[in-house]
């Protein structure tokens, strides 16, 4: 079976600067992977390229052996780092939208999570707080039975208590063959759920190691290692 994500000499250039520069990477199935790096290291660009909302300048990115397209979007569930739902929509309409377009969307799972977070289905998205909107978006993304979840800063805008719920949501809603690739700056919050971490620096891979390897070989937590590697 092809790896869930493969980058071959992947390059993305914005004007004169490189977001990703000749990145080679292979991700296998069934892992929760932290995509870590300082601002401008290329984390969001890599996720956007995998989601198919950005085109590479050179090289290629393959998802289950296929270039991003209509077919890969069936099994990739993407959470962008911004609000992406029509603001005039109601929560229930957003759920209907996902249910209409994605065969692998599980409305009962979304309902359960909306209930446990006491989110009003009739509320318009424009009336929700930033944190609640992020929760709704994450619920929709995690209510799909996807093979690859791409989560760009899923816990950036929510309070610490909600972070725990969100991380729990991620843990309980992906199957063992699925892969979760999530980018964040809040390393200590997510460290415990990660199987592997990728450090990106200047659009290139600085480290690709399992969390166990980091603990045994470096004798450090991911957070401590990150601070050392990216010390200003």
């Amino acid at each position: 079976m092809s790896p869930i994500l493969e980058c071959r000499n992947l390059t993305k250039k914005y004007g004169g600067s490189y977001a990703l520069s000749g990145l080679n990477l292979t991700l296998e199935r069934g892992e929760i992977i932290g995509l870590l790096g300082p601002n401008g290291s290329g984390k969001s660009s890599l996720i956007k390229l995998a989601a198919g909302v950005l085109q590479p300048t050179a090289g290629e990115i393959l998802l289950s052996g296929k270039a991003p397209g209509a077919e890969t979007k069936r099994f990739v569930s993407y959470l962008p780092d911004r609000s992406y739902l029509g603001r005039q929509m109601r929560v229930s309409e957003a759920v209907d939208y996902y249910n209409t377009f994605y065969d692998n969307f599980r409305p009962e799972r979304a309902s359960g999570m909306l209930d446990s977070l006491e989110i009003d289905r009739r509320a318009r998205l424009s009336s929700l707080s930033k944190g609640t909107l992020e929760k709704v978006q994450l619920i929709l993304v995690m209510s799909r039975d996807a093979d690859l979840y791409l989560l760009d800063e899923p816990i950036g805008g929510v309070d610490p208590a909600a972070r725990d719920y969100i991380l729990q949501t991620i843990l309980t809603n992906y199957n063992e063959n699925a892969t979760v690739l999530l980018s964040t700056h809040l390393i200590s919050d997510i460290e415990n759920i990660l199987d592997r971490v990728l450090f990106l620096r200047g659009g290139q891979l600085a480290l690709n190691a399992s969390v166990d390897e980091i603990r045994t070989e470096y004798g450090k937590s991911v957070d401590t290692l990150f601070r050392e590697v990216f010390k200003c």
């Binding site: 989601a51 198919g52 909302v53 397209g69 979007k73 069936r74 993407y78 962008p80 377009f101 065969d103």
Partner: peptide, 13 residues
């Protein structure tokens, strides 16, 4: 715009 992040990730060509 922001909505494009949803539109372009729908399983449509």
């Amino acid at each position: 715009t922001g909505e494009g992040y949803l539109t372009w990730t729908l399983p449509a060509s």
